[in-house]
Structure formats: C-alpha cells, structure tokens
C-alpha cells in the first residue's frame, strides 16, 4: 500500500468538475511526476491532495488513514509539505527566518533541521541573513523547498518548481529533488518541463481533461511513442 493514495478524485473550483476521477499514488523514496497539457487539472490534482479544494467524490489516504476531510494545515501536521507555485517565500524576511517559519508547528523550533536544509542547499546557507525577496529566482525556489522541508515531511508536494527558471537552475533543482527522495521522502510534483521531469520520475502520470491517460515509469513514458508525439512535442529535441 502506497504512502499516498488519491483515488477517483472528482471536483474543481465551481460547478464544473476539473478532476474527472483521476488517481495519483506516491510512495516513500519515490518521485512521482504529473504532466499533461494546459488545463488538464495537474495543479488542481495536487491542490485536492493537499486539501486546498474540496472533493465531490473520491478519497485521499495518507499513511493508510483517510485524510479527505482534513484542512491543509492538518495535513501539514500529518506529514505533508507543500511548495506552492507562486508566492512561496516570505519576501520581507531573511532566508533563516523563512526556514524558521517553516518549522512553526514544531515544538523544538527546528534548529537541527535547519542544518540539514543548509546541507542540502549550500547556496542558500550563504544567504541566510538576506531577505528572501532579494534572492534570484532559483535561490528563492530553493528557500521555498527548504521551508517546506522544515517540518520533515514524509511527502513533499511541489507545484511547478521550475516555472520561470533557467535550464541550469532547473537541473540543479532536480538534482536536489532526487537527493531529497533518496532520504526516503515521497516527492510528488507537477511539471511543465515534462521531458526533463519524466527523466527523474519513478512514476509518471499523464493527465488529460482531469483523467489519467497514461501511467507508467518515467523511462517507459519517455519511450512511448504516443506519449512522445502527443505530450512531449515530438522528437525534435
């Protein structure tokens, strides 16, 4: 049984359902990537998993318990970490304070965890007393991931972490994400850069119109000619 099992999710923002019964699973130490065309419901799916929108149908279980009715905050306490796509740092606070806020729920204040995060992102450590709002896009993403890591989650959810960053920064970030997964954390992310993301994915979910179209290992999906032709922009690159 997987750590996270989101089964048959239906729901959306208003009257129309964006999710049409899609299913996402993710296990410890595994990177699961959700890709698909614009408007496929990728971000909606992880928002539903994190409890930011209500589901009309379907069930989300985490560590074997149903969490469908929990608020996002309670899911953080249960062991989920979330990195939103936009506005994912406190721009007027220093890097260190951003990490401290990530540990707000911890009784111990997270002093030991901060060092682990700094080990993971050495570039961020150098800027620990700078305001997060003054960092470059890539460094800010690292702070954002670091903040979510402060609760030592068992599942880390990332909403398009590489949106708007350069290819070099993207590779760097993906390397970190692989390292995070190696420590036994489950990583679930939505990505626009489908090809690169699938390269590091243990499992890939291709969503179309709120439904699972293809589900396989990252490598298998990359090898699938139909997936390549339809969702990865053919063979040009």
């Amino acid at each position: 049984m997987s750590l996270l099992q989101a089964t048959g999710m239906r729901g959306g923002y208003g009257a129309a359902d964006i999710l049409q019964g899609c299913t996402i699973n993710c296990d410890r130490g595994e990177i699961a990537v959700i890709v698909g065309p614009n408007g496929a419901g990728k971000s909606t799916a992880i928002k539903a998993i994190f409890g930011m929108i209500d589901l009309r149908e379907g069930d989300v279980t985490f560590e074997g318990k149903s969490i469908t009715s929990l608020a996002p905050q309670a899911r953080v306490e249960a062991g989920m970490g979330m990195v939103p796509q936009n506005n994912n740092v406190f721009p007027g606070m220093t890097v260190e304070e951003n990490l401290q806020m990530g540990a707000f729920l911890r009784e111990d204040g997270g002093a030991g965890v901060i060092d682990k995060v700094y080990d993971l992102f050495p570039a961020v450590k150098d800027k620990r007393y700078q305001l997060a709002g003054e960092l470059s896009g890539g460094q800010r993403q690292q702070v954002a991931v670091g903040r979510a890591m402060m609760t030592e989650p068992t599942l880390l959810i990332l909403d398009e972490p590489t949106a708007g960053v350069s290819p070099i920064v993207m590779d760097e970030l993906f390397d970190r994400i692989i390292e995070i997964a190696k420590t036994g954390i489950a990583v679930l992310m939505v990505e626009q850069n489908a090809r690169q993301a699938l390269e590091i994915a243990d499992t890939g979910y291709v969503l179309v119109e709120g439904q699972n179209r293809f589900t396989d290992t990252g490598a298998a999906l990359l090898a699938d000619s139909e997936v390549r032709a339809t969702f990865l922009g053919g063979d040009q690159s």
Binding site: P72, Q73, V76, E77, M82, P84, N87, N88, V89, F90, P91, G92, M93, E97, M101, G102, F104, L105, R147, T151
Partner: peptide
C-alpha cells in the same frame, strides 16, 4: 511578520 508578508504561505506553515 510572516502573516503580514504572505498570508497564504503563513497558513500553510501552520
């Protein structure tokens, strides 16, 4: 300060 800076993220942080 965190709440003033970014309310949504403050909520996410508990």
């Amino acid at each position: 300060r965190a709440f003033s800076d970014n309310e949504d993220l403050a909520l996410l942080s508990g």
